[in-house]
C-alpha cells in the first residue's frame, strides 16, 4: 500500500482558502498515507471543516492543490465514490427519515454494509421511521455516524461526529470504530475537540490553528513529549533551564511549568533530588498548550508590528 508508486491517500500543496475577511486555510501542505486513523484537532473555526470540504470537492480552495489518491477530487466521481464525508451540520431532504437516508447511502457507497448499519441503529436506539428533521441533535449525529461507519469508504471523514451524543453513545461510536477499522482497515479522519476521548484511538495527529498546521506527528511520538514539573519555583526554574517551556503557572513560591522533552531516567532522578514532581501531560493538554503558545507567538509578532508602525 505504501510503496512509492502509489500516491498518498491525501496530499495538500500550499492550499489557501480565503473568505471575505479571513484566511480559513493558510498555505497548508500535508501528506497523509492510507489506512490509518488520523485526528484532525484544533479549536472551533481553526479550519478543520474547510480542510475536509476542500478534500471532498465540496468546497473550493482559493489557491494551491488538493489531491486525493493522486487526483483532484472536484467533480471527480471516480475519486468521490471512494470517500465519505458527513458534515457536522449535514442537511437531509425534508421528507426523509433515517431509513431512507441509509437506503440512499447503500446506492452510492460500494462497500455499504447494511447488517452493520442495522446493528448500529439498534445500539444508538435510533428511530428509523421518524423524519430526520424531527430527530434530536444526538439522533441526527447518530445518522451521520452510522452512514460514515457503514459506508466503509476508503477515506471517511468524521466532522465533530459526537455533537449531542451522550457519553454512552460516544463510547459505542469509539468502540465500533476501533473494531471495524481493525477488521476493515481504511483511512479515517476524525475531527474532534474532545481530544482526551479519542487520543488513544489515533495513530497520527494533525493540529490546525488559524488555518495553519502546527503539529503533524505520530500520536506515539507525541505521547510523553512534555511533562509538567511542579514544586519550588526556583527549583522548577533551574530544572527547566534550556528547555522549551509551553506553559507557566505559579502560586506563591510554588510553580508548575509544562516543558517539552522526553524525560530520561537520569532527569527523573534529578527532578526527584530537587524535590520536584513530574506529571505526564495528556494529548489534550499538550494540544491546548501548543495552541496557546502558537496564539501567543502570533500576538507577539502582531504587537511587534504595531511597535514598528
Amino acid at each position: 500500500m505504501n510503496n512509492p508508486t502509489t500516491p498518498a491517500a491525501i496530499e495538500l500543496r500550499q492550499v489557501t482558502k480565503t473568505y471575505r475577511d479571513a484566511k480559513a486555510l493558510d498555505e497548508v501542505s500535508l501528506r497523509l498515507e492510507g489506512n490509518r486513523i488520523y485526528g484532525l484537532l484544533g479549536r472551533n473555526g481553526a479550519g478543520k471543516t474547510t480542510l475536509m470540504s476542500v478534500l471532498t470537492g465540496q468546497g473550493f480552495q482559493t489557491s494551491g492543490e488538493a489531491l486525493v489518491f493522486g487526483q483532484r477530487p472536484y467533480e471527480n466521481d471516480g475519486v468521490l465514490s471512494r470517500i465519505c464525508f458527513i458534515r457536522e451540520s449535514q442537511k437531509y431532504p425534508d421528507d426523509f427519515n433515517a431509513r431512507q437516508a441509509f437506503k440512499s447511502a447503500s446506492l452510492f457507497f460500494k462497500q455499504w454494509d447494511q447488517a452493520f448499519a442495522d446493528q448500529l441503529v439498534e445500539e444508538f436506539q435510533l428511530p428509523l421511521n421518524r423524519r430526520i428533521k424531527k430527530l434530536s441533535r444526538g439522533q441526527l449525529s447518530a445518522v451521520g455516524v452510522i452512514i460514515g461507519l457503514a459506508s466503509r469508504a476508503e477515506i471517511t471523514f468524521f466532522d465533530e461526529p459526537y455533537l449531542g451524543l451522550d457519553a454512552v453513545a460516544r463510547q459505542i461510536f469509539y468502540d465500533r470504530l476501533v473494531e471495524d477499522f481493525a477488521a476493515h482497515p481504511r483511512t479515517i479522519i476524525l475531527s474532534s475537540h474532545l481530544i482526551d476521548e479519542v487520543a488513544n484511538l489515533l495513530e497520527h495527529v494533525v493540529l490546525i490553528d488559524r488555518g495553519r498546521i502546527i503539529m503533524d506527528d505520530d500520536a506515539e511520538a507525541i505521547r510523553g513529549t512534555a511533562v509538567t514539573v511542579a514544586g519550588n519555583a526556583s527549583a522548577v526554574q533551574s530544572f527547566a533551564a534550556g528547555r522549551e517551556v509551553l506553559h507557566r503557572e505559579s502560586l506563591g513560591s510554588l510553580a508548575s511549568w509544562t516543558v517539552e522533552g522526553r524525560m530520561t531516567n537520569a532527569e527523573r532522578a534529578e527532578a526527584a533530588e530537587l524535590g520536584l514532581e513530574l506529571a505526564p501531560v495528556s494529548l489534550q493538554q499538550l494540544v491546548v498548550r501548543k495552541t496557546m503558545a502558537a496564539t501567543d507567538a502570533v500576538v507577539d509578532t502582531d504587537s511587534e508590528l504595531e511597535v514598528l508602525k
Binding site: T56, G57, Q58, E75, N76, D77, L80, S81, R82, I83, C84, F85, I86, R87, Q90, K91, Y92, P93, D94, F96, A101, S104, A105, L107, F108, F109, I147, A153
Partner: peptide, 20 residues
C-alpha cells in the same frame, strides 16, 4: 427549489459530483 436546497447538500454527502 427543494431539489437544490436540500437534496443537493445531501447528494454531496453521498459523494456524488455536481454534474452527476
Amino acid at each position: 427549489i427543494q431539489s437544490l436546497t436540500l437534496t443537493f447538500p445531501f447528494s454531496q454527502a453521498m459523494s456524488v459530483s455536481r454534474r452527476t
